[in-house]
Design a protein around this nucleic acid. Structure first.
Lengths: 155, 155
DNA sequence: GGCTTACTACTCGGATACTGCTTGTCCGAGTTCAGGGGG
DNA sequence: CCCCCTGAACTCGGACAAGCAGTATCCGAGTAGTAAGCC
């Protein structure tokens, strides 16, 4: 039950992309901004590109840039882009296996255990979808001085 | 981001323990009731015992029995018993690493990304804590005939 | 001098090893029950 | 006839392998910019 650390990397990197603004930034710079593995961060950025959160530009002066405004990117978007379809609980229908499964008639309704876990996960997903990266950036309270600092670090 | 399948096993097994009621039932029977690996289910039951959800009895005619009523067992109790402390998102404080970390003053407040992810997980945890196994069993709508069937399968 | 063309350097993209955790299994410690012997 | 003791069988409990997803890495494909050559 551990979330990939790529999610943390992606979130910070997306916000950094917004702070510097403008043209594409190549992944190596974005990685050293937080001391991350460049190759692995590239992999995560590719996932984000496939999901349409960033756009990639090849060649010299290429890199990644935001494809949407932070207001239009929710936490759920990022988590789903990195983790794929987020279903922590996987119902394997063990109620239909073994002795009980053999003796019971085939069930007609969905598994109650499954339904209960799904309700909880829906609450989680909903809470993720309710928060945008713009809100997080506002919470970070990036001062103009801090923004200059980030641009300098990525320059 | 996958939850251990032990959680599913534990939930179904706990409800079965309640349906049969009474004395301890040994893990082998509980396992074959749903076609599970006996050794591995024992491992999960031990986790539940450590968490105080079931009590274990050694020796012949021993096994596991519910230590609490289903009303007093929430989904969160089970998930935490099996998975340990449930924190999907682990903040590694990358904001303090790399170039940005070196240039920025040490932060005073908690990481905004971390806080946002924690809010979502709190919603999930809260939804888990709001559902008891008694509610799930009620949702299953176990008829007397079905209860007899379970007892027979575990006899 | 301007245009075309080939080259180079730099970036993303996907295929390829490695690591840690979940999953699965095994054997030993402890306990209860049963049977036999003694009082 | 009743009690105690010894033994055996059965259960949990924790230590020990195997498989798989997450982690990390590397090299090839593609592109833009540049410089040289030609008109």
């Amino acid at each position: 039950m551990r979330m990939s650390k790529g999610v943390e990397w992606a979130l910070h990197t997306l916000i950094n992309l917004d702070v510097i603004g403008g043209g594409p930034m190549h992944s190596g710079r974005l990685a050293e901004a937080h001391g991350l593995s460049p190759s692995y961060l590239t992999k995560q950025l590719q996932q984000l590109a496939q999901a349409g959160l960033v756009s990639s530009v090849s060649g010299p002066h290429g890199g990644f840039r935001l494809a949407r405004a932070l207001e239009d990117i929710t936490l759920l978007d990022v988590v789903e882009a990195i983790e794929g379809d987020v279903k922590a609980f996987h119902c394997t229908e063990i109620r239909c296996e073994g002795k009980i499964g053999a003796l019971s008639p085939p069930p007609t309704r969905t598994c109650a255990v499954h339904a209960a876990m799904r309700r909880a996960e829906d609450a989680w997903r909903q809470a993720l979808a309710a928060q945008t990266l713009a809100g997080i950036r506002a919470d970070l309270n990036v001062t103009p001085a801090a923004a200059r600092l980030v641009r300098k670090a990525l320059d």
